[in-house]
Amino acid sequence: MIIDESFQTSDIGHAEAMARRIYPRAELRESTGVPFRYEHLARGEDGVTFARFKIDSTMDIAVDFDRVAAFGVHVAGRYNVESNGDHVDTSQPFLFTPGPGSSLSEQLDVLTVNIDTDVLARSAAQRLGVDHAHLRFGRHEPKSPVLRSHWLRTVNYVWNSVIQVPDVFENDAIRASTLETVVTAALAAFPIEVSETARNFDFASSAAVRRAKAFIENNADQALTVAQIAEAARISVRALQLGFQRELDTTPMGHLRDVRLDAARRELAAAGDDVRVADIARRWAFANLGRFAAQYRTRFGENPGDTLRR
């Protein structure tokens, strides 16, 4: 289900009700006489939601993060935070781990990336090649300065170039692939320990790889994940990855990228003067035009604009 909502109010009861659409167990307690104003923009789908909160006045907020990990970036204002009894440093990207959290804020502006723990666990399991994965949350800050910077760049790019751009956000393929990247980046950047509970030992047959290829080629304009491709091929994600590496010397998502590049090239070659490269790139799920152009040059030895102008 797609989430797309924008809300503003000066009524703290209404604000609490709207906050509970994102965090069902949220309580807002105003602690100053300064006029109250609350606004949020929330967009996402399938257990991954970006939310920007702005709250005037001084606020005491209590939230039970039930089966969700909330990755925060403090933009402005005073913000004192606790998560599961631990003080959290909000001067850098931080994590509300599942469980009770609280904050005292003044003139708050904060961006959060809220990811269901089931979504995190499924993503971790797919990358391990196991049926199920168990997550154990550690500290509340990124694992290293390099990963902290990578996480910030990822969040800023997705927020500014995808979430807040309606034509891009509404593209199913771009939205799904972008949010999948966000989940991967979160697992890499923060100290979330992953342990496997059941390993897949099945291997992909040539027939299964052919089924996966056919599914990709017939649905390349749709939002696809590795898990969906594996399901269509009737094999595990790990088996799918091994099969593509063995038979095609690539990954399922690498093959999907090449199929989309080939389709974009066909459209560019047949397009008229009123067509833009950006429109075709987005139709085939390339959200970043610069990255699309680089991948296009690597595959075809020319810029997409050169193909269009022939």
Rank of each mutant, 00 (worst) to 15 (best):
Val113Gln: 03
Ala173Thr: 06
Arg20Met: 04
Ala51Gly: 00
Glu247Ala: 02
Ala133Gln: 10
Ala285Ile: 00
Asp64Met: 05
Phe190Ser: 08
Gln8Glu: 13
Asn160Ile: 02
Thr251Phe: 06
Arg211Trp: 03
Ile2Arg: 15
Glu106Asp: 12
Ile61Ser: 08
Ser83Lys: 13
Asn219Gly: 03
Gly72Trp: 05
Glu16Arg: 11
Gly77Cys: 07
Ala212Tyr: 05
Val63Met: 09
Asn219Ala: 02
Arg299Ala: 13
Asn160His: 11
Gly47Glu: 07
Asn303Asp: 10
Gly301Lys: 14
Val168Arg: 14
Gln245Trp: 07
Asn288Trp: 10
Ile280Asp: 06
Ser91Gly: 13
Gln164Val: 03
Leu268Lys: 13
Asn218Glu: 15
Leu128Phe: 08
Asp172Lys: 14
Phe137Ile: 08
Leu152Thr: 13
Leu108Asp: 03
Asp131Val: 07
Val48His: 03
Ala51Val: 15
His132Tyr: 13
Asp4Thr: 09
Ala233Glu: 05
Asp258Tyr: 09
Ala70Leu: 02
Pro166Gly: 06
Arg148Glu: 15
Ala186Val: 14
Val48Trp: 01
Glu16Gln: 15
Asn219Phe: 01
Phe96Thr: 01
Val162Phe: 02
Arg43Met: 01
Thr225Leu: 02
Asp86Gln: 12
Leu256Asp: 00
Met18Ile: 06
Arg136His: 13
Val259Asn: 05
Lys143Gly: 11
Val275Leu: 12
Val275Pro: 00
Arg29Tyr: 01
Leu120Lys: 09
Thr9Leu: 03
Pro93Asn: 09
Ile163Val: 15
